[in-house]
Design a protein around this nucleic acid. Sequence first.
DNA 1: CTGAAAGCGCTAACAG
DNA 2: CTGTTAGCGCTTTCAG
Lengths: 321, 321
Amino acid sequence: MTRVTIKSIARDLGISHMTVSRALSNHPNVQKETREAVLKRAEELGYVRSSAAAAMRGEDTRIVGLLLPNITNEFYARYANALALECDRRALHLIIHLTNDDIRLEAEALRRLREVQARSVVMVPAPGEVDPALPADMRAIQLIRRRTEGPAILVDDSDALTAAVLQLARAGHARIGYVGAVPSLSSGHNRRAAYRAGLARAGLPFDTTLEVTGAPTHELGRTGATRLCEAGADALVCGGFEIASGALATWLEHTEGGKRVSFVGYGDTASYPWIRDGIASISVPVEALAGRTAALLAGELAPDGPDHGFKAEFVVRGSAN
Amino acid sequence: MTRVTIKSIARDLGISHMTVSRALSNHPNVQKETREAVLKRAEELGYVRSSAAAAMRGEDTRIVGLLLPNITNEFYARYANALALECDRRALHLIIHLTNDDIRLEAEALRRLREVQARSVVMVPAPGEVDPALPADMRAIQLIRRRTEGPAILVDDSDALTAAVLQLARAGHARIGYVGAVPSLSSGHNRRAAYRAGLARAGLPFDTTLEVTGAPTHELGRTGATRLCEAGADALVCGGFEIASGALATWLEHTEGGKRVSFVGYGDTASYPWIRDGIASISVPVEALAGRTAALLAGELAPDGPDHGFKAEFVVRGSAN
DNA sequence: CTGAAAGCGCTAACAG
DNA sequence: CTGTTAGCGCTTTCAG
């Protein structure tokens, strides 16, 4: 049983494959009966158009790539979920590659997306000193972090982070620690600055032993939280999704005995309200980000330039007292 | 700046496109210098092979489809994560479509995967009375649930569910409620049977008001848990991932005042150990499932027949007392 | 209204 | 070792 093509249908019906093509694409110049016969036969045989052939002719593949560090972190999962729904609605194919924030895996994924002629890629750029130019034949939209120029969907969380620090200070904490990404990443730089701004506004002294930065991973969260606790921090502020997930695990172990260390996570993890007295956090509007991304992908929005339109919010819960 | 093809490289170098093709695919019959010149030029120009052209010639597209109800549920997220990693490792493209357990969205996704000539699909079959045959030109691997014949990766959770009921009975509960999928789904049928077996073995009476079934959604979890609590249940057992996520939310609200209703969730949600005294649950070996799937996809395993090789486990935590 | 030809990028099968 | 031809599925263009 070989593939059903317009030619096989044409042979089957004793007509030219062009007539079949026209019938299937609703071209007016086909006799009614012929058209119906074609449509019927195509249906019976389960014909589907080959998108490979279409792509070869230069048609849009309707493939969108999504490059994420992982998809277990709830922020990325929710983002991917929302984006996948939007893509399905718009008949776009979403190809997901996980980079694990590794720049080599990222490069490999980009290469393969070029092979399939993806029309655009949405990517959380992996951290890295070098600056591999993003491919020009696909439109790249950077998410959350910005490594190079071009369109980006970013979140302004400065006020939220500052507010978190102020709240902790108000609650009587004087040694507020911070774990975040390396300052070479846009997000790492800005978030740490916001943390420092919070300290300044609270009139608290600045202490580098209370700052841990590194590659924004779960692991950094774990080790960073440990280091900060050992350094005598009485509160922890997280500067990233992955980091928060690691730091939370450490914090839960560390404060099991009832030690009074406060905690502010990052992102809207569903279980945050249910853990202990509730985990305070920096809330990021995931669905809105995904919606905007989809609009960009569908060309419903101006394609160029950065996009700082989103604001994070500080959500107070028990862990911030 | 038009696309870089073997022909454009050939023109550029003043040779035939076949020589370029051979050079790029390591065919022996190319003069060393020519080969090097080609490779160099290809590199410079950023040539990538068109997989559309390859697909048209009948080559494998290396595209794998993944159809999931959603990707926010931690089980699906972790599964997708693991599978995506395996696929990246094996240079497979993973296209994710979300079905929301809607059989029409599922059909649409399958049609589009046939268009791109996906070699295989991994799918959690949507619930539905009708039985749309799975397409024959792609290999379909059913996950968790089984709607029709063909290879499937299933989990045997009977013993775990029975054990959960027994544990609750031991803890002194007599009105143990169950929320699960409709029995027309293989998983719905088996899980309810295991729940009932638990009751029987505990010597507890059988009570249909303590059983709620429906489409396996978060919503069913919410409403089902409410109904069961109103029916006077003193313990809840969940028969599915989505259901557990909904039921947990309801349960947390309902028992806030300290009412003593016990709870057994489904799946290995990371936060389960941290909520209240820990949420007991049916633990499913996600990573193993994904590993087996990948092996099947890569053809490293016998492709046919069912696969019941996985066992779920009951994990006791505070919520089961 | 219908058909034949050409070409998208690539390689197998033949010529040289 | 290198080049030419043909064909994968499809549509655009041109000829009936």
